[in-house]
Design a protein around this nucleic acid. Structure first.
Lengths: 93, 93
DNA sequence: ACAATAGGCAAGTAGGAGCTTGCGTGTCCA
DNA sequence: TGGACACGCAAGCTCCTACTTGCCTATTGT
């Protein structure tokens, strides 16, 4: 279990979480395609795979094998540690 | 205004925010002393100063001159962008 | 006035993070 | 059954980040 703050520090990893939040259960190549098409991120398959490893190590992503595919799911629960660490003032005006 | 996610990615910077959350209005040398004493962080004065620059660039820290001192304040409002980006599930069961 | 204190600026260094490259393994379909 | 597809593993490279080093300015107190 690595540092969750470091996990969300990278823009590409944040885009991956954005993608999985919008459409859960994507495969690796699917993520690559949509990152390129919708986020302007031209990362290679290996690069995205390494990012997924880091996200998984932080507990933010889980994966299950489906035959020759590997389906990825996002779990945002660990982000509570980020949101609750400091007293964020209420949305006001 | 630099990346707020990168700003909170460093453990030393998080400790600085912790310190300012607990005791607002500390000076640079004060922060150095308390980081060493209470967080086991032996960063030099210049290192902490550079961290404060990064936190200020992210809008998380403001500072005001008080004679020969410089007093630092934390502002956690920008962290809403972090807490609100993804749907964090409610404290479960 | 002078020493001590608080902080600032800038160049140089070492380690790590992200990416690539190349090849290997397992699964599905025609 | 063979080829295409989805993914895994590992070494090498590059660039950025955190830190140090050295010197400087400004303010305070005696």
């Amino acid at each position: 279990m690595t540092d969750i703050f470091a996990a969300i520090a990278d823009p590409t990893r944040r885009a991956i979480l954005d993608e999985l939040a919008e459409r859960d259960g994507q495969t690796l190549v699917e993520l690559c395609a949509r990152l390129t098409a919708r986020h302007g991120i031209g990362s290679s398959r290996q690069a995205v795979s390494q990012h997924l490893d880091i996200l998984a190590a932080a507990g933010l992503v889980t994966a299950e094998r489906r035959g020759r595919y590997k389906v990825h799911h996002a779990d945002f629960a660990p982000l509570r540690a980020v949101a609750d660490r400091w007293p964020i003032p209420r949305e006001e005006t």
